[in-house]
C-alpha cells in the first residue's frame, strides 16, 4: 500500500473504496443536515466520521485514522449523544424556516461556495502527488511524534493548555451554585404538617400474590382504591389495575364451582 501512495494515480482498490465510501460519506453528511431528530443526525455524523477515518488510513495517516475513531467517533460523538439525551431525545425539530429568505440564501451561498471551491481546486493543478512512502518509512506514529515534539512542541504545549482551559470552562458553565441551604428532614416534616396535605406516609399499594403488586392501588379502610399508592409513571400511563372487583368475581366463581361439585356429589349419592 505504501508503494502506491507515491504513485501519481491510486490503485483500483482505493479508487473503488473512494467512490463507494465517498458516496456513503456524502449521504451521511446530507442526512446529518436534514434529519429531523438530533439523534439521527448524530448517528449519521458518526458514520461519516468513521468513513473519514478509513480515508485517513487510505491516505497514509494511520495515527489520525485511529485517533479519528477513538476521539471523534468514540468520545466526541458520545458527548453529543449525551447532550442530546439531556436536551430531549424525543424532540423532533421542525424544519420549517422561520427567518424569511434564510433558506434560499443559505442554499444559494452554499451552492456558490461549493462551486467556487471546486473551481479553485480544479484550477490549482494539483496533479503531482509525492506520496508518503518516505515520510512514513520510520513509521507514521514515530514520524508524527518526532515532529510534534520538535518542530511543533510549542503548539503542542499550548493545545494542552487549551484543553485544560476548555475542561475548566465547561465545568464553570455547567456548574450551578446552590444558592440556599438544603432542607433538613425535620423542616420537611414540619412543612408537611403546615400544609396539611398528607400527614401519614403514603399508603402502600395493594398486594395480591397473584398480581404484580406495584400496579394495583391499595384499598383504603372503606374499601375504595387510593391512586396515591401507585407510582406516578403508571398513573400517567393509566396502567393502574383495579382488582377489588376481581376478588368478588373470583369468590362467585368459587361458589359456583363448589355448588356444581356439591350437586354432582348429590347426584352421585342419589
Amino acid at each position: 500500500m505504501s508503494a502506491q501512495l507515491a504513485a501519481y494515480s491510486t490503485s483500483t482498490g482505493e479508487a473503488f473504496q473512494f467512490w463507494v465510501l465517498g458516496t456513503v460519506a456524502v449521504v451521511g453528511a446530507l442526512c446529518t443536515v436534514f434529519m429531523k431528530k438530533a439523534v439521527h443526525s448524530a448517528l449519521c455524523l458518526a458514520g461519516t466520521m468513521i468513513i473519514l477515518a478509513v480515508f485517513y488510513l487510505a491516505n497514509g495517516a494511520y495515527f489520525l485514522g485511529v485517533v479519528q475513531i477513538i476521539v471523534y467517533t468514540g468520545a466526541i460523538m458520545m458527548l453529543f449523544l449525551f447532550v442530546v439525551m439531556l436536551v430531549g431525545v424525543t424532540a423532533a425539530d421542525s424544519l420549517k424556516e422561520t427567518i424569511k429568505g434564510q433558506r434560499w440564501l443559505a442554499l444559494l451561498c452554499g451552492l456558490g461556495f461549493g462551486i467556487l471551491l471546486c473551481a479553485g481546486i480544479g484550477n490549482a493543478s494539483l496533479n503531482e502527488f509525492n506520496g508518503l512512502a518516505q515520510a512514513n518509512s520510520g513509521g507514521n506514529v514515530e514520524g508524527l511524534a518526532a515532529l510534534i515534539f520538535t518542530k511543533y512542541v510549542f503548539a503542542f504545549e499550548i493545545t494542552g493548555a487549551l484543553l485544560i482551559t476548555a475542561a475548566v470552562g465547561a465545568m464553570v458553565l455547567t456548574h450551578r451554585e446552590r444558592t440556599e441551604r438544603a432542607k433538613t428532614q425535620r423542616e420537611l416534616a414540619e412543612e408537611r404538617v403546615r400544609e396539611n396535605k398528607q400527614l401519614p406516609p403514603l399508603p402502600a399499594p395493594g398486594v395480591y400474590a397473584r398480581h404484580n403488586a406495584v400496579d394495583i392501588a391499595g384499598l383504603l379502610p372503606d374499601g375504595t382504591a387510593s391512586e396515591l399508592t401507585v407510582i406516578k409513571t403508571l398513573r400517567d400511563r393509566g396502567q393502574i389495575r383495579d382488582v377489588s372487583n376481581d376478588a368478588i368475581k373470583d369468590l362467585k366463581a368459587l361458589e359456583q364451582r363448589s355448588e356444581e361439585r356439591l350437586g354432582r356429589e348429590e347426584e352421585a349419592t342419589k
Binding site: 456524502v26 443536515v33 443526525s41 436536551v87 425539530d93 434564510q102 443559505a106 452554499g110 461549493g114 481546486i121
Partner: peptide
C-alpha cells in the same frame, strides 16, 4: 470541499444548536 459545503449549509439551515 463537498463535505465542507454541506456542513456550512447545515449550519445556516438548522436551528437546533446541537445539530
Amino acid at each position: 470541499a463537498l463535505l465542507f459545503t454541506i456542513g456550512a449549509t447545515g449550519v445556516l439551515i438548522r436551528r437546533n444548536a446541537i445539530v
